[in-house]
């Protein structure tokens, strides 16, 4: 019994981190139509920020890291990405790939490639029946769930969210109605960057911090985005849960590498069958039938 609760909690823990990254990826893909392959490296930036500020109180370090994320996003969008929007999909992909290389190498130069680690701010364990689970993870799970809930409410229930969704749906039309694409792009990229940086910062205490740590999150996060319809913002969150659920199930019977191989195979098969992804929206689904 405690074994299965352990598996369940681990599943929720990995889903939470992935969901936050997938949400930020989906936001960028939806609004800027860019595949940001530097997203994993942005998580790495978050982890190293927390490492550099390990002497500060955790909450303060987290706040500063988030602000660094916002500024970094703004810098990358204004400094690099806006020059490639009109050069086509491949150029934007390569530009973000280049950003990823540079971020990794800056980290390698500053911190060397040897593993770093930080201690979680809460070292206690929560006791559930016979099982103990790290308090820090429980707190982070709740925190991410609350954050994602708030973000989704913001997107689907506020006028700011409506403007964002309008811009995602049709950027020209939204521009005609007074929603500036430049400002929306800068804002969205900045916020999405900060979210990825935050995700990296939050899971940093459970990771071996290296310059390439982000890469292992990138592929699952993208699959989480791809299984949902493009432009949907709730989709990647559900996608992340679905991807991690499948992965957890496969790991119950197989070793990690085999499980990952089969997971990627299944996802490739899924994309081959449903190239546009699943539309998670209940309303749209109903209209089509």
């Amino acid at each position: 019994m405690s074994g299965s609760i352990q598996v369940l909690l681990d599943f929720v823990w990995v889903s939470a981190g992935l969901a936050l990254v997938a949400f930020s990826l989906g936001l960028i893909l939806g609004e800027l139509k860019i595949v940001n392959v530097a997203q994993g490296d942005l998580m790495m930036v978050g982890a190293y920020c927390m490492y550099s500020m390990r002497a500060l109180p955790f909450a303060l370090a987290l706040l500063i890291t988030f602000i660094i994320g916002l500024l970094l996003g703004l810098l990358l969008e204004r400094g690099v990405l806006r020059w490639v929007y009109d050069k086509g999909f491949i150029a934007t992909l390569l530009a973000t790939w280049g950003i990823g290389i540079v971020l990794e190498q800056v980290a390698a130069v500053l911190f060397t490639v040897s593993q770093k680690g930080i201690d979680p701010p809460l070292s206690g364990q929560i006791v559930i029946g016979e099982l103990t689970y790290p308090t820090y993870r429980i707190v982070v799970i709740c925190g991410i769930a609350a954050l994602l809930g708030a973000l989704l409410l913001l997107v689907y229930r506020t006028s700011l969210g409506l403007r964002l969704r309008a811009s995602i749906d049709n950027v020209e039309m939204a521009a005609i109605m007074g929603i500036s694409p430049q400002r929306t792009f800068a804002m969205v990229f900045s916020v999405a960057t900060a979210l990825a940086v935050l995700a990296g910062a939050l899971i940093a205490p459970t990771l071996a911090i290296t310059p390439t740590l982000g890469l292992s999150f990138l592929a699952p996060a993208f699959f989480a985005v791809l299984v949902a319809k493009q432009g949907s913002l709730a989709g990647p969150v559900i996608g992340a849960v679905a991807v991690e659920f499948t992965f957890t199930m496969l790991q119950a019977y197989l070793n990690v590498t085999m499980a990952e191989a089969i997971l990627f195979g299944l996802l490739a098969l899924f994309i081959a069958i449903k190239p546009q992804g699943i539309s998670w929206s209940w309303k749209t689904a109903r209209r089509e039938t």
């Binding site: 992909l93 592929a219 993208f222 990627f264 490739a268 098969l269």
Partner: peptide, 28 residues
Amino acid sequence: AVVGQHRATNPSTMAVLTLAITLLAEKI
């Protein structure tokens, strides 16, 4: 290529697939 270049597939799919296979190959 068959999965990633299908007419209805998002252009991002190819990038994700090639990224995934190289990460997986390294693990294997």
